[in-house]
């Protein structure tokens, strides 16, 4: 190791500085890294949104109470349901939606006339569950037993569908990432093979002087690794503004940091990027370098088998 350090840093016996089409390789790898960054953002973003929905909707229930004002056992039906709910451990909150909120909910179906049409609307209670709550079926059964006609609807179904959607989106993003990696490897392989063809004579001479396959492969691999790392870094940098804009657009939905969404200053914009992305973006140049190194090693060693 130490004696290799003594070798002049710019000693380029195979003349690879000219042979390995650097600019093209650099640009292509940068483009791959850019795409990879977008796909990664897809993975991270969808996961964050899905988690947010799950924790929001998974613990929410709506309870419909038909004919809420009717008396039953000395109380209005709605009061009875609320009382039962309050007695159940694990119910974090139970709030009757006001007439206006209800009208707001129903507007897409009934337009503004919901109140005027004098339909006897059921009362709707929004329930939030905390840990230790009975599952939605048990809870619904207890409410229906206390006040017949009560309907309890869990949002779990929607959460399930959303999870399925989120899962598929994530799978697509991972697939895109894999394809991008494969294309990057192919690009490096093609560039390496072009370099091998261009430097064939130099390689044969060096081989004749007793260079091992490893010596020659290392020359190519170190060059491919450097170029791929720089390309990966450039691609990740180019993707950063796009990701920041996306993060800003997604901020109201995730609402994890409303203050960041409201503040347009550069620092706050940077802070809006989800932490997992901050961890994965620097990995892009490293991953590109790894792909460059492995692909060049394999390509060169396979090519060298034609020499005795």
């Amino acid at each position: 190791m130490a004696r290799n350090l003594l070798r002049p840093a710019r000693f380029d016996d195979l003349g690879l500085r000219r042979a390995l089409g650097d600019r093209m390789l650099l640009l292509l790898v940068a483009a791959m890294a850019f795409l990879a960054a977008l796909a990664l953002a897809g993975v991270v973003g969808v996961r964050a949104l899905a988690a947010h929905w799950q924790e929001g909707a998974g613990s929410a229930l709506t309870v419909q109470v038909p004919r809420p004002a009717d008396q039953e056992g000395g109380q209005t039906r709605i009061a009875r349901v609320l009382a039962v709910l309050h007695d159940i451990p694990g119910v974090a909150s139970a709030r009757k939606l006001s007439q206006t909120e209800l009208a707001e909910l129903l507007r897409p179906w009934l337009s503004d006339g919901a109140e005027l049409m004098a339909i006897r609307l059921p009362a709707v209670i929004a329930v939030r569950l905390a840990a230790g709550a009975p599952n939605p079926e048990q809870l619904g059964a207890r409410l229906a037993a206390a006040v017949p006609g009560t309907l309890t609807e869990s949002h779990g179904m929607w959460v399930q569908r959303l999870s399925l959607l989120a899962g598929s989106l994530q799978a697509c993003a991972w697939l895109a990432l894999a394809v991008v990696a494969a294309v990057a490897a192919a690009v490096v392989a093609i560039a390496t093979r072009a370099g091998l063809a261009a430097r064939r004579e130099a390689i044969e001479i060096v081989h004749g002087l007793g260079a091992t396959d490893g010596y020659i492969a290392d020359r190519f691999a170190s060059r491919a690794t450097g170029l791929a790392a720089i390309g990966g870094g450039l691609g990740a940098l180019a993707a950063l503004p796009v990701l920041l804009v996306l993060a800003r657009l997604a901020a109201p939905f995730a609402a994890a940091r409303p203050e960041a969404a409201a503040d347009a200053s550069g620092l706050a914009m940077l802070a809006a990027l989800p932490p997992p992305l901050w961890l994965t973006l620097p990995v892009l140049p490293l991953a590109a370098a790894a792909i460059g190194f492995l692909t060049a090693q394999v390509t060169v060693r396979r090519w060298l088998r034609r020499l005795p």
Binding site: R3, R7, P8, F11, D12, G15, R18, I205, V206, L209
Partner: peptide, 22 residues
């Protein structure tokens, strides 16, 4: 000979391949 290397580097090539100290 390798055309892009100086006469010195061409002569040094076998020793560098063999990993001799500079």
């Amino acid at each position: 000979l390798l055309p892009h290397l100086s006469a010195y580097d061409n002569v040094a090539l076998p020793l560098r391949i063999a990993g001799r100290p500079e």
